[in-house]
């Protein structure tokens, strides 16, 4: 039990996917202008990660490794993730319209979110088993959502303050991300 708790703390705070592993910068900077948008994006990322990681895990260990094709990992994973995202989008549109209307617009953006492919590859390199991989994907998604919501909350405040013109927008967001990353580094003492 304890190791699962430590894995959660590690993935959410210490090795935060955005602030320590530098993954998913495009949505992190692009979808962090409003809190509502950031919550939707964060939820969609968690959703797709929880689906994509076990599926790519199964493909790696049940298809690619037995056939000796593991050098095709990258190309298989990205195609599976792209297809999966399209399927999820079509499924939600038909089956769960309310969920689609809140998450749907974020789904197409996720295929090229390197955090999703990144997690799928990281769990292979760490040789996690299927359960741990799925749990790690969930924890990583949670860390992404936390970082996104925090940055969006700060940027909403920043909109109404006076900034030098050259710092407005992405430069200010990056410097803020640096400060947040510094504070997240302080959690390293916990594990």
């Amino acid at each position: 039990m304890m190791e699962y708790f430590l894995l959660l703390i590690s993935a959410v705070f210490v090795n935060n996917v955005v602030l320590a592993q530098y993954l998913g910068q495009c949505p992190y900077l692009g979808c962090s202008k409003e809190k509502g948008v950031s919550i939707g994006m964060g939820a969609a990322v968690i959703f797709v990660m929880i689906l994509a990681t076990p599926i790519t895990w199964l493909i790696q260990y049940k298809v690619l490794v037995p056939l000796g094709l593991d050098y095709l990992q990258t190309i298989m994973f990205i195609l599976v993730i792209a297809a999966l995202v399209q399927l999820v989008e079509m499924f939600l549109k038909k089956a769960v319209p309310p969920l689609y209307s809140s998450l749907g617009i974020f789904l197409p953006l996720i295929t090229t979110n390197c955090a999703v492919l990144g997690v799928a590859i990281v769990v292979q390199r760490e040789s996690f088993d299927l359960g741990t991989s799925t749990y790690y994907a969930f924890a990583t998604g949670l860390g992404f959502m936390l970082a996104l919501i925090l940055l969006a909350s700060i940027r909403e405040r920043l909109e109404i303050s006076r900034l030098p013109l050259s710092m407005k927008g992405v430069p200010a967001a990056l410097v803020l991300a640096g400060i947040m990353s510094m504070s997240f580094m302080a959690f390293a003492g916990m594990i």
């Binding site: 992405v170 430069p171 410097v175 640096g178 400060i179 580094m185």
Partner: peptide, 15 residues
Amino acid sequence: EAPGAFVSLGLILAG
């Protein structure tokens, strides 16, 4: 470290 990456890129973009 990670913060240095963010801050230096942010300042370059500002420049």
